[in-house]
Design a binder for these strands. Structure first.
Length: 378
RNA sequence: GCGUCGGUGGCAGAGUGGUCAAAUGCACGUGGCUGUAAACCACGCGACUUCGGUCUCCGCAGGUUCGAAUCCUGCCCGACGCA
């Protein structure tokens, strides 16, 4: 059972208000999706993640295969039961690790760059530590060197064992440094893999296909046409979208114009607070980002007035809450001074309180998005 | 009181005649982080600087030497042992 219902379409933009129905409940969209790579939103219990307003989480195929292994998760009753998360779940296919453990590591870059990249990865190049073939990807764990092969069939098989409500096709997330020729070859491979994923897919879990093409508009459009025509129940849009926010919106809009309107779209791995309106107005329904939790552990607090580093000395004497406008339990209870102290002292509680607040903030921002669409403001 | 060992940058701790403004770690500071190899990473951390350097610096005071954090003498302080 999987269904997507569009409740309202904006007249001002491509934004839509919707609801995704899954066996584990509904997701009001646009929705922010916290990242729970290894079956946990780091530092938080599943109950707390629910408390903070998360409707759905995304876990990771590669990392859960590595530990504890999908067999064990299946034996434990599936991901939901294993991690005691009662709401919907997604699993990412491992396609992002093709980048993050490949060229991402080689060049020390993330998938979104700050400035116009000097594209330099020529076609036929392989990353140092992994090998990309037509059948899939040979990984080598950066931790213990363990060899691991992941292709479309393997990814789907693992994701079926894990048992999330929404699963993703295995793709290659291309590097933002990939040259156009590399991008084209990679894209064709990703498209081939998409077909293989559909063939391999046996369960009732919703399978999303992934559109790639980097910052090359014609490739993006082509990808959206090909993936959009395949019998997926939803779509992921992955990779990079250029180095500024405007190109993100433009590219997403172009892709969403091509994809079937009645199916949900998930924007993969994008979602700093300032990106939210761009994603939603470009037609995105769900989107995940590690930012709230990843940054929280390093002391970066997201607020209605922007972000700041709570570890800064001056907050040691600041008795105000993290964000005076925030309605979360942390802001109602604890001072900046306390959280500043905890983080400086490397106390885990500091990371947890910051994570809790940031996640609340991100979810509240997503809720604002929905309200704005309802009120014809977006 | 005698003996032994030791006193190095905010802390811990290398160095034991030149290559030492002094390893390394921690702390501190700045920057980075967008489908999490991430409680991580990079850089800085005596002062001044026209960025080529200049000055001050290894408990204190003297001395030896072309040259001392490093060797010698005295003093101060600490740990341990013996009285």
């Amino acid at each position: 059972m999987f269904e997507f219902k569009i409740l309202k379409k904006s007249k001002k933009s491509r934004a839509r208000l919707g609801v995704i129905k899954t066996p584990h409940g509904e997701i009001e969209t646009p929705a922010f999706v916290p990242v729970a790579t290894r079956a946990t939103v780091r530092t938080l219990e599943s109950d707390e993640v629910a408390e903070v307003g998360a409707q759905v989480l995304i876990c990771n195929t590669y990392h859960l295969h590595t530990a504890p292994g999908e067999k064990l998760v299946k034996k434990a009753g599936g991901l939901h039961r294993f991690m005691q998360w009662k709401r919907p779940l997604m699993t990412d296919s491992g396609g992002f690790q093709v980048f993050s453990l490949g060229f991402g590591t080689d060049h020390g870059v993330g998938k979104i760059l700050k400035e116009e990249p000097e594209r330099k990865i020529p076609e036929g190049t392989q990353p140092t530590n992994i090998k990309i073939t037509d059948d899939g990807v040979h990984f080598r764990s950066p931790i213990d060197g363990e060899a691991l092969f992941l292709g479309p069939r393997e990814s789907i098989r693992i994701q079926e064992a894990l048992g999330a409500d929404i699963i993703f096709a295995f793709d290659e997330c291309p590097s933002p440094l990939a040259g156009k020729e590399y991008m084209r070859t990679s894209l064709e491979r990703t498209h081939r893999w998409a077909g293989m994923c559909i063939k391999a897919h046996k369960t009732k879990q919703a399978l999303y296909g992934i559109v790639q093409g980097g910052n090359f508009a014609p490739l993006r459009i082509e990808s959206a046409k090909i993936i959009g025509a395949m019998p997926f129940q939803g779509f992921g849009i992955g990779g990079e979208f250029g180095y500024d926010k405007r190109s993100l919106k433009k590219m997403l809009s172009a892709v969403h114009a091509v994809l079937p309107q009645e199916k949900p779209r998930h924007v993969l791995g994008v979602g700093h607070p300032e990106d939210f309106p761009y994603i939603a107005s470009a037609g995105g329904d769900t989107f995940d980002c590690i930012a709230p939790t990843h940054y929280a552990r390093r002391g970066v607090i997201f607020t209605s007035l922007g972000r700041f580093d709570i570890r800064n000395r001056r907050y040691l004497t600041d008795q105000k809450p993290l964000d005076p406008k925030c309605k979360c339990d942390i802001c109602a209870t604890y001072s900046r001074a306390y959280i500043c102290h905890l983080l400086r002292a490397h106390e885990m509680t500091g990371m947890k309180l910051a994570s809790y607040h940031n996640l609340h903030f991100f979810n509240a921002q997503a809720e604002k998005l929905r309200t704005r669409i309802k009120n014809d403001e977006l």
